[in-house]
Write a protein that binds this DNA or RNA. Structure first.
Length: 870
RNA sequence: GGGCGUGUAGCUCAGGUGGUUAGAGCGUUACGUUGACAUCGUAAAGGUCAGAGGUUCGAGUCCUCUUACGCCCACCA
């Protein structure tokens, strides 16, 4: 007896929660989902599971997409594959930092010393007056909270029956993951793909960190066009009108450009324009960058108002005038703009000093005021709505700030990365287009350094010269055997900790890596966490993920696999859709329309929620609808009751429970039913092989309701008779089959049914049995037409009874059916079952071979038996 | 501006090699309680398959155009 059977009472009423705890205990004890490391790579199904970001609570969207993956994985397992199905938590990075700040009401100040006595406590008031703590204390707080959050995530994933091997659990901030990530970085440095550059970078002034192209988004914001008058050096009567949305950048203007073909400005090329207020002479340069028909056709280039300015500056060879600080405020002029190359330095400095220290928006208002006073503002600013780049998590527009950052050169390899994407099979196929669009549109290398705290550190130190100044040009890289390292606490080879920060000593790199620099290595990390002696290798079989992170997770993972090993990370990418709220709007915390999953699992059962998830097709956004879960609940309950009914009939029939029951199916109607079942097996296998799990579910469910409503109703009379063997054997095979067909979708109920069968000697979980194959049924299957015609006739008489508003048990005194000879011949084979199902008295059925179309030509209903008794 | 996707019953969605009368669940209505199942069953009503043209013996399905919505990318003086 299995552990499962010992704990079950056969006459139990359906109780989802009992079944779930029985199954979870059984699977755990049985090691049902353990990865078999001895299996060959060809015989292993390898999944690159998304490690969810641990920052708060799971979303129903997670439940949907992760369950869809679990369904496919369970099918592969039943096909006999060893399954490598790890789970990880993505716990490094900004989302975690933000949650920790709010939860404990603390902020990281890297200049503070470590306080070993500091214990973070949850502070719900979150008044914004945060306690400042050291970097190490902050990281400890992150670890405390992520551990708590990860527990909550694990509880939900276990409860919903995802078949991960929990022994393979990893976290992206763990030492082993850090090692993999640092190793990847060093490899890319060696290959010349990663390098550090002092360059203008997109900068979020709130988080005070560089960000990458993948993390930015455009937002439509209110702004103003300002028509500003520029002069021309040596030509006091000539003025240009330049329109700009960012007049605060006037002191950072480095040139004025017009299109080379623009006749209005051709004669001024080579001359200098005079920036108003600051009287800075800047070259007037021809450039394709300017469009003749846009505005006045002439524009100013500043360092840096936008990405176009950066691009233009790069090829211009002109020096930067940096006026924006890392905090998003105007720098004092000794930084970027001093000395003013002004025709009137005192006047320029006077204006500039009045905007120093202001936020960009304040500086803009101030400059507009000055322009208005000086008469250089030619018209009142015109309000416009225009798209502005923001960090996706930020609240203020991005600035372009020059700083030293580590980059991964992706622009050089766009073609290779598009080609790599083409080697991967995308489901649905159009998601590949989305990938290619993203790669084609890349215009910046991947900036991987972040000026944050909780993340993977760079394995780098810098030498200090005799004056204690940092030499960035010759970083000291960690050696591979040193990894993982934290350069802020570990010393490089050949140095001692005492030399940190001292002249001729060293300093550690303070920055950490972009969280995607690590997340893009989930296949490599998962392999690092796999038991020794495994036969795993790239490419994995599948990457399941949502479409919003094609530009990040999918792209970066493909990039890393290509850069490291010139391979693709996975053979297939399965892209799931989103769960939208019932009004088809995206769910988000700020809208308060997020549905939390635990409540649903309790209300509808894990199987029911899984049913809802599996109903949604890959890549299709669905509206959240609890009624589907209700439907799933009804389905599983029906499975429970139908199987219980069959078990009762099996026990009542008193047949040999160890017999080879499929061979005992001999009745033509039973064989006909098995052929219907076989059709469903065929459709289901075909659908699964095409990753179309939802179609497999649909076909299985349809067949199951047909079974309950028709076959079971029609044969139950015979199953209770002396002639029960064929019918009961057929019911046993049917229950076995449904348990397996439903197993990927409703694993709890499937296990319940399979484990508690009164027959069979299999003590294994249903989840490691073989998925039904057509060949299992071929020798048993009969003529499906017999089943279809029988059901059709039964339905006709049921309908006749319903139209008379009579009970379905109402006896039929006489029945005449007209059909063609072939149909008559079929119906004769199932006639006694039909009579039984319809409660026909005295075998009074006449089959007439008259018409081609089957029809009931006479149906005489008797008195309701109950009424007669009364 | 370029691209991708979607438009089928009141609602949420299937429709799988173009083939009888277009399906399911929910909702509505009527009836029934049948050897497991009231967290049930049987049935009815409800559709110019977004619109127009085309290919075909035959189109919800293939092609073209139009239209509405959603998303992605780009532009951003």
């Amino acid at each position: 007896m299995t552990a499962y059977k010992e704990t079950r009472k056969l006459d139990d009423k359906y109780n989802a929660s009992d079944i779930e705890s029985r199954c979870l205990a059984f699977w755990e004890k049985d090691n049902t989902y353990r990865f078999d490391k001895t299996a060959s790579r060809e015989n292993t199904y390898v999944v690159d599971t998304p490690p969810p970001t641990v920052s708060g609570s799971l979303h129903v969207g997670h439940i949907m997409s992760y369950t869809q993956t679990d369904v496919k994985v369970r099918y592969q397992r039943m096909k006999g594959k060893s399954v490598f199905y790890p789970i990880g938590w993505d716990d490094n990075g900004l989302p975690t930092e933000r949650r920790v700040q709010n939860y404990f009401n603390i902020a990281c100040n890297p200049n503070l010393p470590y306080d070993p006595n500091f214990k973070p406590v949850h502070d719900p008031k979150n008044d914004g007056k945060r306690v400042e703590v050291s970097r190490k204390n902050f990281i400890e707080a992150c670890e405390i909270l992520t551990t708590e959050d990860e527990k909550a995530f694990e509880d939900i994933f276990r409860q919903i029956g995802h078949s991960y091997d929990w022994d393979l659990k990893y976290t992206t901030i763990s030492p082993l993951a850090i090692k993999v990530s640092q190793d990847s970085f060093l490899d890319l440095v060696e290959k010349g793909i990663a390098c550090s550059v002092e360059a203008p970078t997109m900068w979020d002034v709130t988080f005070q960190s560089a960000v990458a192209q993948a993390e930015i988004e455009d937002r439509e914001v209110d702004g103003f066009f300002h028509d500003i008058q520029f002069g021309v050096e040596g030509e006091p009567d000539v003025h240009f009108t330049i329109a700009t949305t960012r007049p605060e950048f006037l002191p950072a203007c480095i040139a004025v450009v017009a299109h080379p073909d623009d006749e209005r400005y051709q004669k001024y090329f080579g001359k200098k324009a005079i920036v108003p207020l600051f009287d800075i002479p800047v070259p007037i340069v021809p450039s394709e960058h300017a469009e003749m028909d846009k505005g006045t056709g002439i524009m100013m280039v500043c360092t840096f108002g936008d990405a176009a300015d950066v691009a233009w500056w790069k090829q211009s060879g002109l020096p930067i005038k940096q006026i924006v600080g890392l905090d998003g405020r105007i720098l004092p002029n000794e930084y970027g703009v001093e000395p003013f190359v002004s025709l009137n330095p005192q006047k320029a400095a006077a204006y500039y000093n009045q905007i120093t220290g202001l936020k960009m928006k304040e500086a803009r208002a101030q400059i507009v005021e000055f322009l208005r006073e000086s008469g250089d503002l030619l018209a009142e600013p015109k309000p416009i709505k225009h798209p502005v780049k923001f960090y996706e998590k930020g609240t203020l527009p991005l600035e372009f700030v020059s700083s030293r950052q580590w980059f991964i050169k992706i622009l050089d390899y766009k073609k290779e990365l598009v080609d790599a994407g083409r080697e991967i099979k995308w489901f649905p196929g159009h998601m590949q287009t989305r990938y290619e669009t993203w790669v084609d549109g890349l215009n910046q290398d991947w900036c991987i350094s972040r000026q944050r705290f909780f993340g993977v550190p760079f394995p780098i130190w810098y030498k200090l010269d005799e004056n204690g100044l940092i030499n960035y040009n010759e970083p000291i890289f960690a050696t591979r055997d040193q990894l993982p390292v934290d350069p802020m606490t570990d010393a490089p080879a050949g140095y001692t900790e005492e030399m940190r920060g001292k002249p001729n000593g060293f300093v550690g790199e303070k920055d950490i890596m972009d969280t995607w620099a690590t997340s893009s290595l989930t296949p490599q990390i998962a392999m690092a966490f796999a038991p020794e002696g495994h036969h795993l290798s790239l490419p994995f079989d599948v990457r399941p993920q949502a479409h919003d992170i094609i530009r990040t997770w999918a792209f970066y993972t493909i990039m890393k696999a290509w850069a490291h090993d010139k391979t693709i990370p996975w053979k297939e990418a399965h892209i799931s859709g989103f769960v939208l709220d019932p009004d088809r709007k995206k769910m988000s915390k700020s809208k308060g329309n997020v549905v939390t999953p635990m409540y649903l699992l309790e209300k509808y059962s894990s199987d029911a929620v899984r049913y809802w998830a599996a109903r949604a097709k890959l890549g299709i956004d669905i509206a959240f609808e609890e009624q589907i879960m209700e439907q799933g609940k009804k389905l599983t309950m029906k499975m429970f009751n139908a199987s219980k009914f069959v078990y009762m009939m099996v026990q009542n029939a008193g047949i040999d429970l160890n017999a080879d029951y499929p061979k005992m199916i001999s009745n033509p109607l039973d064989k006909a039913w098995i052929s219907k079942l076989m059709e469903t097996v065929k459709a289901s296998v075909k659908a699964f092989e095409a990753n179309d799990y939802s179609f497999a579910l649909e076909m299985t469910e349809k067949c199951f309701w047909d079974f309950c409503d028709n076959y079971l109703e029609i044969v139950k009379g015979r199953a209770y008779s002396d002639d029960a063997v064929s019918a009961v054997s057929s019911l046993m095979l049917t229950i076995d089959t449904f348990a397996k067909l439903f197993a990927p979708f409703t694993p709890f109920m499937a296990e319940e049914i399979y484990a508690t069968r009164p027959w069979g000697t299999d003590e294994k979980s249903v989840h490691v049995t073989a998925f039904p194959a057509v060949s299992d049924y071929e020798t048993i299957a009969g003529n499906p037409d017999l089943y279809d015609k029988t059901v059709a006739l039964v339905e006709m008489v049921r309908k006749a009874k319903a139209e008379e508003k009579r009970s379905l048990r109402t006896p039929v005194v006489a029945l005449t059916v007209s059909a063609n000879e072939k149909t008559i011949a079929l119906l004769e084979q199932s006639l006694s079952d039909i009579e039984n199902a319809l409660n026909v008295k005295d075998h009074n059925v006449t089959l007439e071979a008259h018409s081609d179309e089957m029809a009931v030509t006479n149906c005489v209903l008797g008195e309701d038996e109950k009424k007669v008794k009364a």
